[in-house]
Structure formats: C-alpha cells, structure tokens
Simulated assay, not measured.
Amino acid sequence: MRPRPQRPSGFARPDTGGPGRHRGGVGISRVYRFLAPSTAISIVYKTLSPPWGINGGKEADPNHIVIDPGTEHEERKGSSYNFLEAGQVLANNTGGGGGWGNPFERDPAKVAKDVRNGFVSIAAAEQDYGVAVDPATFSVDTARTATLR
C-alpha cells in the first residue's frame, strides 16, 4: 500500500486523540483562506485544559485556532477577534478525546491501522504506543515493536 495523500480541510488531524489501549477520538481541522481583508470572530471553548485520559490513558490535544499555520507568523489562540488581510489563513482545530488504558496495551495491528488512516503518525506510534510501523506497507515490525515495548 502507498501512503495516503494529503487530506483536504475538514478531515482528521493526526496525533490529536489521546493515546490509550482505546485511543481517544481525533480532532478535525477546518481551514479558511481569506480573499480580501476581513474580520473573523472565533469562539472556541475548552482551549486551556486538554481532554484528560482515564485509567492510564493520555490526554488529547485541546480545541484551538491557528492564524497563518506553517508560517513564521503562526499564532495559536483560543477565542479571539481577528483582523485578517487577503491571503491569510485561519485554521479552526477541534480537540481530540482522552485515551483509556495503557497505550502500550493497544493491539499493534490497531495502531498500524491508525497510522494508515492518518489518525496516528509513525513517530507517535513508536513513542506513545511502542509500535514500529513500516511507512511503505503500514505493516507492524514485530521484532522492533518487541524491543520498543
């Protein structure tokens, strides 16, 4: 299998669900590019406290917006009133859900499927779950996974 192409606005954001034996739900991103000078009012709640994990699960990424993501002017915010120029970008990012249980107890095949579906990155699969996934085939490297775990 080949890696999936970059997803358009409105799809899941990798590594936003809390790691756990049962991974938390992932957040999504809706991205807006302004074509003329504009004002944007962003009302986003629960931006300071990450959704917590339960029974050994880890916390998730909280809600937030990002002005000009991926640039030197990138600014992460909660609720705000923004004056934006033509060409500027605003990304509205919903948070994920906290994980449940020890992430190292998650079935490696499920972690590999999460990587294939774009919910978990290769790096997070190794760091948070102790699972080595081949980026070309999305198969689990069982020997390396045993070492990581």
Rank of each mutant, 00 (worst) to 15 (best):
A60W: 02
L90G: 07
E105F: 08
I43V: 15
P69S: 01
P103N: 05
A123E: 15
R4W: 13
N92D: 13
A123S: 12
P108V: 01
R144H: 07
S121D: 05
P8Q: 13
G25A: 12
V140G: 04
G98V: 00
P5C: 11
A36K: 14
P8F: 06
G27T: 07
V31R: 12
N63G: 01
S38G: 05
A112E: 07
S49F: 10
G96W: 11
I122N: 11
N92A: 15
N55T: 09
I67C: 06
R30S: 05
R21G: 12
G99Q: 01
A36W: 09
S29F: 02
D134P: 00
G27F: 02
A112M: 08
D114L: 00
A109W: 00
P5W: 11
E126I: 00
V111I: 03
T145R: 03
N93G: 13
K113Y: 08
P50D: 01
V120Y: 05
E59P: 15
G18S: 09
L90W: 09
L84T: 02
S80P: 00
V26C: 11
G20N: 03
K77M: 10
T94W: 09
W52M: 13
P5Q: 10
H22R: 12
S49N: 14
A109F: 05
V89K: 04
G97L: 04
G57C: 07
L90N: 09
A112F: 03
P69R: 03
R76F: 09
G98E: 00
I43P: 08
P3L: 01
G17R: 02
S49A: 13
N93C: 14
G56A: 08
S121H: 02
G53M: 02
G130R: 05
A136L: 15
V111Q: 09
R106E: 08
P50W: 00
S80M: 07
N117A: 11
P19M: 03
R4F: 12
R23M: 07
R13Y: 12
R2N: 15
A86W: 06
Y129Q: 14
G53N: 09
V115W: 02
L35G: 15
R4A: 12
A124L: 08
F138G: 05
T147S: 14
N93P: 03
S29G: 14
S79H: 02
V26R: 04
E85P: 03
G70P: 02
G101W: 05
R116N: 07
S80H: 10
G57K: 04
G70Y: 00
R23P: 05
G24K: 03
A143I: 11
T47Q: 09
D141S: 06
T71E: 04
R23F: 00
G70D: 04
I28E: 09
P37E: 07
K110T: 04
A132Y: 06
G95E: 01
I43S: 14
P50S: 12
G78R: 12
E75T: 08
L35T: 14
G56V: 07
R116I: 06
I65E: 04
D68S: 10
P103L: 00
S9H: 01
A124S: 13
F11R: 12
G27L: 02
A109S: 10
Y129S: 14
S9V: 01
V115L: 05
N63P: 04
S80G: 13
P103T: 06
G17D: 03
I28N: 11
P50A: 11
A40F: 03
L148V: 01
K58F: 09
P108Y: 05
S121T: 14
H73F: 08
E74C: 04
N55A: 13
S42L: 14
V26D: 07
E72I: 11
P5D: 11
